[in-house]
Design a protein around this nucleic acid. Structure first.
Lengths: 118, 118
DNA sequence: GTAACATATGAACAGATGTTCAAATGTTCG
DNA sequence: CGAACATTTGAACATCTGTTCATATGTTAC
């Protein structure tokens, strides 16, 4: 990797800017976490689930019915969403009710929409 | 798929909520576009590139140097980012300078950070 | 024109990701 | 307790995605 860039390093790189920006970058972990968060919004199924939950809390079965998908597929995705703290759940008898953990989903989705409609 | 849910459909589904939310959902295409946008933020390399460009516009070679990655890898990702209209470029002699298309990257990233730090 | 540099591109490979299927867990009700 | 329901889980499979490598394109300076 370094060899490929030998030329570039001595010719094209603007030392000052490179050094400055290198220092300004957040650490690896923060960037990893952030990318991980946005991954949640980067899948159609998860996006749909979140849209559903924006309207109303709901059991797994209802979500599956609304989206026309297997209840298993939904359950897998709910697990992933839960792991990122975007949604939570509570048990209600035989059902498990899922709902948004806070208002972040709404604001992130809206922010995204703004970019789309331009 | 429908067979698996035969039981659920007749027992657990709350018809009223299901019907209501079904109608409220955005169409397939909007959701697809939105997920596509967030996919851009869902990869570590692209995230880093955007962070770099938040500081300063830059040529491919500089970005590669800052991130310690191949120039080819960066170029591939820049292409993807450009296709989603998050960044643009202009040619300047032998170099191509990339820069953020507008302020959306900043606001989306910030929104994400808010969720992380809580 | 040719040489040197900067970037872009395509094919190939490896790893990540989402869905399916089958089976397990946990809950309620008789 | 056992039967029925709702959800979860794990393994297998197919697809998608990012990086690498080699090569092509485009620019400048001589």
């Amino acid at each position: 990797m370094a060899d490929d860039m030998q030329f570039c390093e001595t010719q094209c790189v603007h030392e000052d800017i490179v050094e400055k920006v290198k220092k300004l970058l957040p650490d690896e972990e923060a960037i990893y976490d952030l990318a991980d968060l946005f991954k949640m919004f980067g899948d159609t199924t998860r996006m749909k689930i979140m849209y559903v939950l924006l309207e109303s809390e709901m059991c797994v079965c209802d979500i599956a019915e609304i989206l026309g998908m297997t209840q298993s597929a939904i359950s897998h995705q709910l697990r992933i969403l839960k792991s990122s703290k975007l949604i939570t759940s509570r048990r209600e008898g035989k059902s498990v009710i899922y709902f948004l953990a806070d208002d972040h989903v709404r604001s992130i989705v809206n922010q995204g929409m703004e970019h789309i409609f331009e």
